[in-house]
Amino acid sequence: MKKIMLLFCLLLIASCNSQDKRPLMGDTEYQQELNASYKDASKSPLKTKDLKNFKGLDFYKVDSTFIVTAKLTKIANAPTFEMATTTDRKPLYKEYGILNFTLKNKDFELTIYQSQDDLSDAKYKDYLFLPFTDDTSGEDSYGGGRYMDVMITDENPDGTIKLNFNNTYNPYCAYNEKYSCPLTPRKNHLDIEIKAGVKVFKKH
């Protein structure tokens, strides 16, 4: 009986120590979920050597200044086009709408896109794709730009939608060149430093 109790205690201690060594990394739920997915070898875009040393993505400090309300002007009858990527792959997209918003007392405009390949997928059919570059691109953030997922279901009755630049992510190409990633259209450059969201990844 004593041996069984001792074994139980040892297992309990080992379990607690294991949990202590693997805390959720990140200051927000979004950061924690993103880090958890990158730490998971079954779905991580990281190369083996980078995954081995992975301790969490590098983020700018969360800043509420970079949460803005944008006016969404939908584009009627937009043509389907082939989005340029880092490879020969040409996924089908449509321009869904134009986003106008004010950030740090400056007015900006971005085009938001809808993947035509995802429309038949119940999991992703409500997702809109917002790629952008800014004045940190190629310096503190990835040179190819960053992405933001926006949900159609988050659109308000007054035609506005919230953009949270703290919840941005890098294309998988930023971590591993084997992936094919949409290139950010030139017109989606923001002439401002977006010091929010994920930073450039430093490979090992």
Rank of each mutant, 00 (worst) to 15 (best):
P131E: 10
I98P: 09
K203G: 11
A41Y: 15
H189V: 12
D27E: 15
T102N: 02
S44V: 12
M148E: 02
Y127H: 14
S42V: 07
S64P: 01
L110E: 06
H204D: 08
L46D: 09
K123E: 14
K71I: 11
N77Y: 05
C181T: 00
I98D: 02
K39H: 15
D117N: 14
K203C: 06
L190Q: 09
K43H: 05
P185Y: 04
K178D: 02
D58S: 10
K162V: 13
N176L: 08
F129H: 13
I192A: 13
T85G: 05
L119I: 09
G138H: 03
T168W: 03
L110P: 08
L190A: 12
E177Q: 15
L183E: 04
I192R: 13
K55Q: 03
C173P: 06
Y38G: 03
N77D: 14
K49A: 12
P45Y: 12
D63Q: 02
T102V: 13
T133Y: 05
T86F: 08
Q31T: 11
E139Y: 09
E193M: 07
M83C: 15
V150R: 00
G159N: 06
F108N: 13
Y96L: 03
I4L: 07
K90Y: 05
L119V: 05
K187R: 14
L190P: 10
Q19P: 02
D126W: 04
Y142E: 07
L12N: 01
G138Q: 04
Y142T: 11
T69C: 04
G145I: 13
P157G: 04
L130V: 00
K43Q: 15
P131L: 07
D135H: 11
Y147I: 06
Q114W: 02
R89V: 15
N100S: 09
K74F: 06
N164F: 06
M151P: 00
A41R: 15
D149H: 04
L183P: 00
G97N: 03
L190V: 12
T65K: 11
A36W: 08
D117G: 00
C181V: 04
F59M: 07
D158N: 15
Y175T: 00
C9Y: 13
C181S: 05
S180M: 09
E155H: 03
D134W: 07
T73V: 01
Y127Q: 02
L72M: 11
Y96A: 02
K162N: 12
D134C: 10
D121Y: 03
T153R: 10
C16D: 01
Y93H: 08
Y147C: 05
L128R: 10
A41W: 09
R89Q: 14
I194Q: 13
L12Q: 10
K187P: 08
G56L: 03
K178R: 05
Y93W: 13
R22Q: 14
C16G: 03
K43E: 14
N156C: 00
P79E: 12
V68P: 03
K199Q: 07
D40A: 10
K199G: 00
N100K: 13
T73P: 00
S37M: 14
Y142H: 12
P23D: 04
K162E: 13
I13A: 12
K104G: 14
T102P: 01
L110I: 04
K71N: 14
Y172D: 09
A196K: 05
S115A: 12
L51C: 01
Y175F: 10
G197A: 09
T69F: 09
V68M: 01
T73W: 06
S141K: 06
S115I: 07
E193G: 06
T86D: 01
D20P: 02
